[in-house]
């Protein structure tokens, strides 16, 4: 019980900081917005089919997530607060789950605002055809990104290259998530009969569980010397 309470306190603190500075959210959202504009100009005059649009959307989400993830430990690191957290009577994994859920939260909000924007710019309403299922896909996909990303972000924050290293480590690991969310989203948008949504849904759930478990088991080795 105290475990969950501590996680919530930690998330509340991060949300409060974010509401005050608006650092992460603004940069993530602007990134999505500007990349979308870039893509529109890059593809000008060309027919963008739905498959391509879904791929573009997820690639942009992934890049934007990296922005947020790479910032998530900065406040803990720069003033030594990570150690401050480590001397509070909570399990190490509280810090991981607090950060991972917080990141998931930020990513989901950015996605939720961006998706209608995509529909608008690409004049494509099929994106919003089944909002509930789409949210499920967004949730599981973003959970995958944030579960691995938070663990790797705790690593890269302590390296020389810092933010530069995170995408290099994260992208190859996240490829299975990218494949399955793209498949699922295409299925939701086009109802492609060649896609088996149950398989990809289960696959995504397995992926999320595996990496949440690995992070749960290894996080203390990342922060504790």
């Amino acid at each position: 019980m105290k475990f969950f309470k501590s996680i919530i306190i930690l998330i509340k603190k991060d949300v409060k900081t974010e509401l005050r500075t608006k650092e992460i959210f603004t940069s993530m959202f602007l990134f999505v917005f500007l990349t979308l504009i870039i893509f529109n100009f890059a593809f000008i005059g060309k027919e963008i089919n739905q498959n391509l649009m879904v791929g573009i959307a997820w690639a942009i989400f992934l890049f934007a997530s990296v922005l947020g993830l790479s910032r998530s430990f900065i406040h803990e690191k720069d003033t030594g607060c990570l150690e401050g957290l480590m001397i509070t009577p909570t399990d190490r994994s509280v810090i991981y789950f607090g950060k991972a859920i917080g990141n998931l939260f930020f990513i989901l909000i950015v996605e939720a605002i961006s998706i209608p924007m995509f529909s608008l710019f690409f004049s494509e309403e099929s994106f919003l055809r089944s909002p509930l299922q789409l949210f499920g896909v967004l949730f599981l996909g973003s959970l995958g990104i944030s579960s691995v990303g938070t663990l790797l972000s705790a690593i890269t924050i302590n390296t020389k290259a810092r933010e530069l290293l995170l995408p290099i480590l994260l992208f190859p690991v996240i490829i299975p998530v990218l494949i399955s969310v793209v498949k699922l989203t295409i299925y939701l948008v086009t109802a492609d009969p060649f896609i088996n949504p149950n398989f990809w849904m289960n696959f995504l759930i397995v992926y999320d569980i595996i990496f949440l478990l690995i992070a749960f088991l290894t996080f203390e080795y990342v922060i504790e010397e």
Binding site: K16, T21, T79, G80, C81, E83, G84
Partner: peptide
């Protein structure tokens, strides 16, 4: 209780 040379305080709070 621990007081270190790092204050462990959040600047934005």
């Amino acid at each position: 209780g621990l007081v270190s040379h790092n204050p462990f305080l959040y600047g934005d709070l």
